[in-house]
Simulated scan of single mutants.
Amino acid sequence: MDLFSRASVKSTKGRIKRARALDRVPRLSVVIPCYNYGHYLRQCVESVTRNQLGIDIEVVIVDDKSTDDSLDVALSIQSQDKRVRVIRHEQNKGHIATYNDGLEAVTGEFVLLLSADDLVTPGALTRAAELLAAEPSVGLVYGNGIHFSGDLPPSRSGGKGWIIWSGVDWLRDRCREGYNVVASPEVVMRTSVLRAIGGYRPDLPHAGDFEMWLRTSAVSDIGFLIGVDQAYYRSHAVNMNRREFSSGTARGQFVDLKQRWQSFEVVFAGVGSNLDGGLLQTARRTMARQALERVNYAYARGFRDFPTEEFEALAREIQVDVRDTKAGRALARRKRLGMTSLPLHPLWAPSAIAWRIEDLIRRWRCRRIGI
């Protein structure tokens, strides 16, 4: 790891450790929720049952009353591999209930929730199990995820060690940044921690993963696998985020931002209620600022169809005095100038450059040190 990466780890209070091989054979359960992804299911299962050495694998497929051939494919896989078990819903329950039904059924020491359209990389489960077995304080481990469509790109498998954060330090960084740094298929959890904190919340269908990671960090340490790719996240026309949450649209941005804020609220009202109260205030300032940044962007670029009033209202709901903040004052100045159809708004260039640099640093740091 280069000096800049090491300095970044130190700034987040992470500890770099040398990876250690398994000294026993742990049982790792993989829950695969499936709704109309029959054409992806076999490849998904094969990714967790092949090339994962040194661990005892259990696979639980939960079919949520699919209308395609998903159940037939699942039953066929079960008949060919005794490690695979199928749970079938008699009626469609939705993704959160499907997740929880599968998670309740597992028997492994460690557990992964893997959508039927995603995959894990060769050796991913072994690498995650190595860290969890060696570090009992860690409740969640992740690495990098690869977004792809079409053929699978190559993945990195030559690990360079581990980073361990205390849960509070990892949570503090999330409060400062506000973003989710973990998609989902690259996460393996300790089942005992999952049992202690409970399953996914039905009232946060869009930010369920984010809230789960926050909740886990409130009660356990967090681990990251350096320099390896742990999962493939498939991009396609019927991704659930696109189908149900309008990902990539202004409406999708609003839902995402609001539910990320609600995730902080419920965590600090629940398992994180005994933590430093300043963390919630940090999250409050971060999320209110992000709401206004999107309004500022709309004004600067002349996006007249953008729902600016909704975003402003959300910012005020999160932080009552948000108009007195830097982002609030910047918006007031832009409003005086009005929206513009010009390629470059008079107040846009400096903030645009700073915003872009901040985003590049955040993406670089996420890939190199996971946070």
Rank of each mutant, 00 (worst) to 15 (best):
M240R: 12
A7T: 10
V181R: 04
A133I: 01
V111K: 04
I357H: 12
L337I: 07
R289G: 09
D81L: 10
M212S: 15
V59K: 06
S184F: 13
W213S: 05
Q91I: 06
V86F: 04
T340I: 00
G338E: 08
A207C: 05
D276T: 02
R362A: 15
A313I: 03
A330T: 15
R190P: 03
L152R: 12
A124R: 03
T126L: 01
T325A: 14
I197Y: 15
S155E: 11
I318S: 13
E177H: 11
T191D: 09
E211I: 03
R83Y: 11
A124M: 06
V267M: 11
R127G: 01
V187N: 08
N92H: 12
Q43K: 13
D229A: 04
F254T: 13
L344E: 06
E104Q: 10
G54P: 12
Q259N: 12
R195C: 01
G139L: 10
L225I: 06
Q52H: 08
L360Q: 15
L331K: 10
L279A: 08
M287H: 07
L53I: 02
V106I: 14
G159D: 02
K326R: 15
D117P: 14
W165Q: 05
A298G: 06
G145P: 01
V320A: 10
V320R: 13
D221H: 04
S149T: 15
I55C: 08
D221Q: 09
V271L: 00
S273E: 10
I361F: 05
R242Y: 07
Q253Y: 07
V188R: 01
V295R: 06
R323Q: 12
R336P: 05
G161I: 02
Y200Q: 00
G161N: 11
A300S: 15
T107P: 04
R176V: 01
S157D: 06
D68F: 09
K93H: 14
L113C: 15
C366Y: 10
